[in-house]
Structure formats: structure tokens, C-alpha cells
């Protein structure tokens, strides 16, 4: 598949769509994991579930951060409309990356299934 140019308007929605997918995955994954194999409450926050969610969060945030950087580069040397689309996309990717980290941070300290 041809690579999607970084000035394509689809980038305006890809970032937050990825965020949404990640969000649904961690919420759904947590619910299913807690229904299927809840860890003992004594384990606290250091469970397989937390680690898996944390890794997924970090990976998603890294991907989004990279896309933000790429769009920002693309915005640099473009005129007018292309610059507009790339710059707004970069902002949206950045926001999505920060939102991923911010929403995901509780996996560090909160036990999963209580």
C-alpha cells in the first residue's frame, strides 16, 4: 500500500482513533481479564494485568509520539492548506500521545480488579 502522505486530512482523525482503540482495548481487556482470571487482592498493583496494560500504553504512546513528530516535520516546509492539515494533525497526535500516558498512568499504582 502506498504510504499515506503526512498532509492527508485522514491524519486529523487517525491519532484519536488509535487512542480510542487503545482505550477500548485496555478497558475491555481489563474487564475480561478480571472476569476470567482475577489475581488475589493481596498482590496489589504488581500483577500481570497491570504490566500488560502498562506495556500496551507505552507502545501506543510511543507510536503516537512518533507520528506527531513526523507530522510536525511535514508541516515545516509545506505551504497553506497542507501545512494547516499537517500542523493540526501533529497537535492531535501529540494530544493523543499525552492522553494515552495520562489515562494509562493509574496502572502503576492501582490494583486491577477491586
Amino acid at each position: 500500500m502506498r504510504r499515506l502522505a503526512l498532509t492527508h486530512p485522514l491524519h486529523l482523525v487517525i491519532g484519536l482513533t488509535l487512542w480510542s482503540l487503545w482505550f477500548v482495548t485496555i478497558y475491555g481487556g481489563l474487564s475480561v481479564a478480571c472476569a476470567v482470571a482475577p489475581p488475589a487482592p493481596e498482590q496489589g498493583a504488581l500483577t500481570t494485568i497491570n504490566v500488560a496494560l502498562g506495556l500496551l500504553t507505552a507502545a501506543t504512546a510511543a507510536l503516537l509520539g512518533w507520528l506527531a513528530w513526523a507530522c510536525l516535520q511535514a508541516a515545516r516546509d509545506k505551504p497553506g492548506r497542507s501545512r494547516f492539515v499537517a500542523a493540526v494533525s501533529a497537535g492531535l497526535y501529540l494530544y493523543s500521545a499525552v492522553a494515552t500516558l495520562f489515562v494509562g498512568i493509574p496502572v502503576i499504582g492501582v490494583p486491577p480488579c477491586l
Binding site: 486529523l12 482523525v13 484519536l16 482513533t17 487512542w19 480510542s20 482505550f23 485496555i26 478497558y27 481489563l30 474487564s31 478480571c34 497491570n50 493540526v88 492531535l92 494530544y95 492522553a99 489515562v103 494509562g104 493509574p106 496502572v107 492501582v110 490494583p111 486491577p112 480488579c113 477491586l114
Partner: peptide, 27 residues
């Protein structure tokens, strides 16, 4: 655009008292 998307990730805050695990509530 942010508002349009993020607002779909908040619905459970109307349901914080139904007994959902606290980690999910934190999300």
C-alpha cells in the same frame, strides 16, 4: 476534533457507583 473523540471515552463516569473495578474507573 479532540472533544469529538474524547467524549466517547467518558461514559462510565456516569456509572462510577455500579461497582466497576477501581482501575477501570481511574481510566
Amino acid at each position: 476534533i479532540v472533544t469529538g473523540f474524547i467524549s466517547f471515552g467518558l461514559w462510565v463516569h456516569h456509572m462510577f457507583t455500579v461497582g466497576i473495578p477501581q482501575l477501570a474507573q481511574a481510566f
